[in-house]
């Protein structure tokens, strides 16, 4: 009998879309119940959003001033305290989940399975290695299975659920050795979240400068798309790190991905493999991105974008 506990990712007010994808992964396990824990200072709003996901059995709302920010060292002992009632603990494979899940697993004395991309059974999973250039099928040993869910591999659970929300007290000793100082966001404005966006427009080294990236932003806004970037563009300082798509950035699965001036290093391609349609615009006809693009156009992005904008009206 499988009972899954998912740890919700949120910013205090809004549930992150990755959580709904972890719910879908949990359903693949054939779980008898899928509970979702919301750790927050006041998790009412987020718990309400979780309750509306179909497939969720119970939402556990753990309010504690110490949970104001998601700090792994503080959350992990609380997750550990809840985990004994469950067969599985799943967390989205975002920076939040990657930080938290191994700490939880080590406290429980079990290994952790990273980036679950397919569920074969309650204990057998596929996961990518070597930047997605190979896939291993792995079996978890006896004990609680702790895993992170590669969100691009699972669709989001639908809205339409009506799970009950239970307030819980968790008794765990919380450390004071780790303190949140600040979070600097690049202020994406109203642009859709990269990991949830149906369309993503991305720029690479070929964009040339921070100023030139305005062209990418403007085109993305016209499409209602999220804005991504290659590592080269982030390293060059054209755009902040939270836009990076790829193996060490964000793994995304939009319906439409348009890459401008991105050559397509393996690490970048690892982040877009699950996109519905990939469009690549690059001056270099030999750019590796064309090997995965559904539609490739060998051209100068600065000539293509105005034409595209005109065509879209």
């Amino acid at each position: 009998m499988s009972k899954v506990l998912i740890i919700a990712e949120h910013d205090g007010a809004n549930l992150n879309g990755s959580t709904a994808r972890a719910v879908t992964c949990a359903q693949g396990i054939g779980a008898d119940s899928v509970d979702v824990a919301v750790f927050a200072s006041d998790g009412s709003a987020v718990a309400g959003q979780v309750a509306a996901l179909s497939g969720v059995s119970t939402v556990l709302q753990i309010d504690n001033a110490a949970n104001e920010q998601a700090v792994a060292a503080i959350l992990a002992p609380q997750v550990q305290a809840l985990a004994s009632d469950y067969s599985h603990v799943l967390v989205p494979s975002t920076t939040f989940g990657k930080d938290l899940a191994p700490r939880v697993a080590a406290l429980l004395g079990v290994p952790q399975i990273s980036d679950i991309m397919r569920v074969e059974s309650a204990t057998v999973f596929d996961r990518p290695i070597y930047a997605g250039n190979a896939v291993t099928t792995v079996e978890a040993p006896a004990g609680i299975v702790v895993g992170t869910v590669r969100t691009a591999s699972f669709s989001a659970a639908d809205a339409g659920g009506s799970a009950t929300v239970e307030k819980r007290e968790v008794s765990a000793e919380l450390p004071s050795h780790t303190r949140f100082v600040k979070l600097e966001t690049s202020g994406g404005g109203d642009r859709p979240d990269l990991q949830a966006a149906a369309k993503v427009v991305s720029g690479g080294r070929g964009v040339g400068s921070e100023e030139n990236f305005k062209v990418i932003y403007d085109f993305a806004d016209k499409l209602g798309a999220g804005v991504g970037a290659s590592r080269a563009a982030v390293d060059a300082g054209f755009i902040p790190n939270d836009h990076q798509v790829g193996q060490t950035g964000k793994i995304i699965a939009p319906e439409l991905y348009i890459a401008f001036g991105i050559s397509g290093a393996i690490q970048h391609l690892a982040g877009i493999k699950d996109a519905g349609t990939i469009v690549a615009v690059n001056k270099d006809p030999d750019a590796p991105i064309f090997e995965v693009a559904d539609f490739g156009l060998v051209a100068d992005l600065f000539e293509v974008i105005p034409e595209l904008e005109k065509a879209l009206g």
Binding site: V138, K273, I278
Partner: peptide, 17 residues
Amino acid sequence: VKVLKTSAPAQREAGIK
């Protein structure tokens, strides 16, 4: 964690220019 097998990933087919 026991590794049962390792396989090549599904390849995306190149599309058209």
